[in-house]
């Protein structure tokens, strides 16, 4: 479960040049929810995602991840949380170059020093859940299409059984049809495996795939409603 209370984030570039990207944001996401965070470019979505993903800490406010306050942890502790509790899907540059599909997916487990047999089994399962064909498992990451790359990224985000999967504009680089397939994958993972998914997007159409939409503008939440299907 994710509980965010009155979070702010201020970027400062020099003394007189401060910019508040988040101005006090509060919300709760329960396990098994599929939430979209939507807003125009520059509204603070990625900033929020970095904080939710423990890549960054808030300037003020608290963030409880499964009841644990993670807003003031050290770099190494944050790395542990990212490795064990969070799965990321980025818009681009999702996969490590010079590395096979299977190995890409095992990376969170490699850093966790999970043994070889177990990590390969789990990676294969995750790839199958993400809809990847077994024929591609030993392919190099640069031999894949855009849609395949996103699926491998989803598989990697799944492999450590995270509290949530965070996806920042995962369909931003894909054509509509491929985008639909990727969004369907998220949908399926949420329904069939009860994964918590937070989908960040600036497109209302994409946000509609989720069950709930939080709209952000200029660093503030302006609406938080269930999607009507």
């Amino acid at each position: 479960m994710i509980e965010v209370k009155n979070i702010t984030k201020t970027y400062s570039q020099g003394k007189d040049n401060e910019f508040q990207a988040l101005k006090g944001v509060s919300f709760t996401v329960n396990d098994g929810e599929f939430v979209a965070i939507m807003g125009p470019s520059g509204s603070g979505k990625s900033t929020l995602m970095h904080i939710l993903g423990c890549l960054d800490t808030p300037s003020s406010g608290t963030y409880l991840l499964d009841g644990k306050d993670v807003s003031k942890l050290s770099d190494d502790n944050l790395a542990d949380i990212r490795r064990d509790n969070i799965g990321f899907v980025f818009q681009s540059f999702n996969l490590l170059p010079r590395t096979t599909v299977l190995r890409n997916v095992t990376f969170p487990l490699i850093y966790a020093e999970v043994n070889k047999v177990e990590r390969n089994t789990r990676a294969r399962q995750a790839l199958i859940s993400a809809g990847m064909d077994e024929a591609h498992f030993e392919h190099m990451s640069n031999q894949l299409s855009g849609g395949q790359i996103q699926r491998v990224a989803i598989a990697r985000a799944l492999v450590n059984n995270p509290t949530m999967i965070l996806a920042d504009e995962p369909t931003g680089n894909l054509d509509t049809k491929t985008g639909e397939i990727v969004l369907e994958t998220f949908r399926k993972l949420n329904k069939e495996l009860s994964r918590t998914i937070i989908l960040i997007t600036h497109e209302p159409d994409v946000a509609l795939h989720a069950d709930r939409t939080i709209v952000v503008r200029d660093g503030l939440i302006i609406s938080d409603e269930k999607n009507i299907k």
């Binding site: 790395a79 542990d80 990212r82 540059f93 170059p97 450590n160």
Partner: peptide, 16 residues
């Protein structure tokens, strides 16, 4: 640089 960023995002520590 981006590869290093990605590695860190998926759990690599400074030491790694």
């Amino acid at each position: 640089t981006r590869e290093i960023g990605l590695r860190k995002a998926i759990g690599a520590k400074k030491r790694d």
